[in-house]
């Protein structure tokens, strides 16, 4: 029973992180029409920055904040230096398929560059990454409780972020402008909303969300140039399960994946995880192509 509960709690905590990463993907997809395969590469990069700050004697929290800021700056830079010029170019000569494919390839190129740069700067060998609070199960007199302070920390942080993002998107003017720019760029521009600025902002928010996911997951995956590749796959699946257009769907998808993977690992065998993910991904796309919460409109791309 204890195993089951601890599986559920660990699954919820990692699921919360997947939810964050999936949300990052959804924000850029909605805001800029790009599935960003480089997202967790960006997160790996900023986690290295944090790791180096900690290694040179700074506090975890300073590193934490610096990583989040560099995550959003990196996202903005990718939009301004690569995605925006690409969008201008492709509009002249493109079929619809092409328009959706080129940014995907560009994001893979960015991923390759970030991973190689991390290798050049910080070597290829794995390193650990600390947690701000204890990651061992709580001691309770004689026995142990089936979760750790870090589990609770992760769930708390992610919940706070999700609530703030939801407030931002529904209750503030900039949030309204971002949603308008995503849903109908033409009407948004006629309303005076600077759509390209909103796009850059979605890259920034998504970059920060990805970075946060990186900081929270790395203690359990260790850090290497490729260490977050799998998180991208899981986050992508979570986003598709929830419907790529739906932020709430991404969160639910992330939790489903987190708890599901936790259960498969504990009660099945770890090597079945990818087959399970593949099965889920194909099943959702064939049975409910818009995801469990996606809109009824025809998918983009």
């Amino acid at each position: 029973m204890n195993t089951f509960i601890s599986t559920l709690i660990t699954g919820t905590a990692t699921g919360a992180i997947y939810a964050l990463a999936a949300l990052g993907l959804v924000i850029v997809w909605r805001g800029a029409g790009v599935v960003n395969f480089a997202q967790m590469g960006q997160a790996m990069f900023t986690t290295y920055i944090a790791s180096n700050l900690i290694a040179s004697g700074n506090s975890y929290w300073l590193a934490f904040v610096v990583a989040l800021i560099s995550g959003s700056l990196l996202g903005m830079a990718i939009d301004l230096l690569i995605m925006r010029p690409l969008a201008h170019k492709k509009s002249s000569s493109s079929t619809k398929t092409l328009a959706a494919t080129i940014p995907v390839i560009a994001s893979l190129g960015i991923l390759a560059i970030l991973q190689a740069l991390a290798g050049v700067f910080w070597a290829g060998e794995e390193r650990g990454f600390p947690t701000p609070v204890n990651s061992f199960y709580f001691k309770n007199g004689t026995g142990t409780l089936p979760f750790s302070a870090f589990n609770l920390f992760v769930i708390g942080v992610v919940l706070t972020v999700l609530l703030s993002l939801s407030y931002f998107f529904t209750q503030t003017g900039v949030g309204l402008g971002m949603r308008a720019a995503a849903l109908n760029p033409e009407v948004a521009r006629l309303s005076g909303i600077k759509v390209s600025r909103m796009r850059t902002l979605s890259w920034a928010i998504s970059g920060a969300a990805g970075s946060l996911a990186g900081l929270l997951i790395t203690p359990s995956t260790n850090l290497s140039p490729n260490s977050l590749d799998l998180i991208l796959i899981v986050a992508f699946t979570a986003a598709v399960v929830g419907g790529l257009d739906s932020p709430l769907g991404a969160v639910i998808g992330g939790l489903i994946l987190g708890i599901g993977i936790s259960l498969v690992t504990t009660y099945g065998s770890p090597e079945n995880v990818f087959l399970a993910i593949l099965f889920l991904l194909l099943a959702v796309q064939l049975i409910r192509p818009n995801g469990i919460l996606g809109g009824k409109q025809v998918r983009r791309g």
Binding site: G173, L176, G177, R179, A180, L183, N184, E186, V187, A188, L190, S191, G192, I193, G295
Partner: peptide, 30 residues
């Protein structure tokens, strides 16, 4: 639009998933 020209494009251009108020607010965001 900042110079005082507003355009209502063809085809009832509103954002269907927004509330009525949000659609109106959108026009005044800037």
């Amino acid at each position: 639009v900042r110079s005082g020209i507003a355009h209502v494009p063809e085809g009832h251009a509103v954002i269907p998933t927004f509330s009525v108020l949000e659609n109106i607010e959108m026009g005044a965001l800037f």
